[in-house]
Amino acid sequence: MRNCWLLLLGCLATACGGNFSNDDLEFLNALPSREDLASKLPASSGAVSEGALRQRSDALAVGEPSQLYRDTREASDAFNTGLDGLLTLLEELRQLPPTTRAPEVRVWGPWADPKHPGHEVRFAIKREPDSFTYLLQYRPRGSGEDGWWSAIEGTFQPDGGLRKGTGAVRILIQQTKAHGFDAGKLAGLDLLEIVYQTRALPITVRMRFVLASPPPAPELLYAYRELPGGLGEMGFLLEDTDLLPGTQKEDLAIISRWTKDQGGVGVISVTGGDVPAGFTATQVECWDASFRITYMKRSWETAVVGNASECPDVSGLEE
């Protein structure tokens, strides 16, 4: 999918010219930005390398690299990978004026698609009475208006302020692959849905990854929240997966909250399956600014590692 988007960017760069009108900017402001949607989990560097995070011993102790930070890092990276191609396309689109203007429509293209000879591509935004809709579409050349099919479809409902409101984007990967297009890093999915709101703090983003598997296809659910000053939260849910010894499958949930420069707090919860009825297996783990354990407690053990007073204050994100 990313390959398709990058090719579209090449079309945009060579085919457009001119200036923006104020009305053009209103249409473009309906598109989500990287600053609004991407996870901003602090990256590991300096005191703890990625290699060190992978070498934590089984005998946990204060100062060990935090596995839960690593799990959060992987979830954050997967979250941002799902967004990257879309946001890169929209960033480039904002630099280029539309090819066609109508009172309630802006269109970029159509242009020939160099990756898929005989196909054309376009991006269109339509203004409704109280919202905007947009589509990234392809068609076989010469097939007419009925030949267009959508690879991306999105909506945005403004609610005061620049790019403030609620929106949703669906990346239609199954349809894209069915037309013979390269889905790149998203090839293992059939659908990626993104729902977000920027009208009030905390900013929230939810993503649903539908895996390309026989029905019923498993799903991965991510949720991200953000407050000014670097306070963030990543939630991850994987249902019906084999986590514990036994014949049944469990549900795994991870919620991690972090500060800009004082570390974070994560909670793992496992329910159902081979977990005893009425019981939730939980692990709480805190890490410092160097991504090392300061506190850890498991619900099935009496021993505690470290001191809970060393956990950073992430109460600003509590419901």
Rank of each mutant, 00 (worst) to 15 (best):
Y196S: 01
D159S: 15
L8I: 10
Q137G: 01
F236N: 03
A112K: 13
H179M: 12
D36G: 05
A200G: 02
S33P: 06
N80W: 13
G232Q: 12
Q175A: 15
S315P: 05
P32A: 12
D288R: 05
F209M: 07
V270Q: 03
L227K: 11
T100A: 11
P214E: 14
T259Y: 02
E239H: 00
L231H: 07
F132S: 00
L162T: 12
R141C: 13
R122G: 02
C4S: 09
P216E: 02
G160A: 12
T99R: 08
N29W: 12
L6S: 11
D261K: 10
V267R: 01
T198Y: 04
F132V: 09
T247F: 11
Q137S: 14
P129T: 09
G51H: 13
I194D: 04
A178N: 13
E318F: 08
P97H: 10
A303M: 06
G272P: 04
R298C: 04
F123M: 11
G184H: 03
A124M: 13
F123I: 07
M207P: 01
E226C: 09
V265S: 00
G273K: 00
F279Q: 14
G144T: 12
I152R: 03
P214Q: 07
L211G: 13
V314M: 05
S299C: 03
Q137M: 07
G109I: 09
F236G: 00
G272I: 04
W258Y: 14
L201G: 03
L237F: 07
E26H: 09
R170N: 15
L68G: 02
L135R: 15
E64V: 04
T259D: 09
P202C: 03
S150V: 11
V265E: 00
I293M: 09
I203W: 15
T99M: 06
T198E: 09
G184N: 09
R56N: 06
A178W: 04
M234P: 00
R2Y: 08
I254P: 00
R127D: 04
T259E: 07
H116Q: 14
E91Q: 12
E120G: 06
K297Y: 09
R298D: 06
W149T: 06
V105E: 15
M296C: 12
E64G: 01
D58F: 12
K126D: 00
N29C: 10
A253K: 14
E145P: 09
D313E: 11
F209C: 03
T133I: 08
G246H: 08
F291G: 01
K115S: 12
D242M: 04
V284F: 06
A61M: 08
P97C: 07
F209G: 00
P312N: 04
G18Q: 10
L93E: 05
S143R: 10
S39N: 07
G18P: 05
A187E: 15
E239S: 10
A124R: 15
L28Y: 15
F20D: 08
G316S: 11
P65Y: 09
L25C: 06
P42Q: 04
A30R: 05
T166Q: 13
F236E: 08
Y196A: 03
F279R: 07
V195C: 02
D24Y: 06
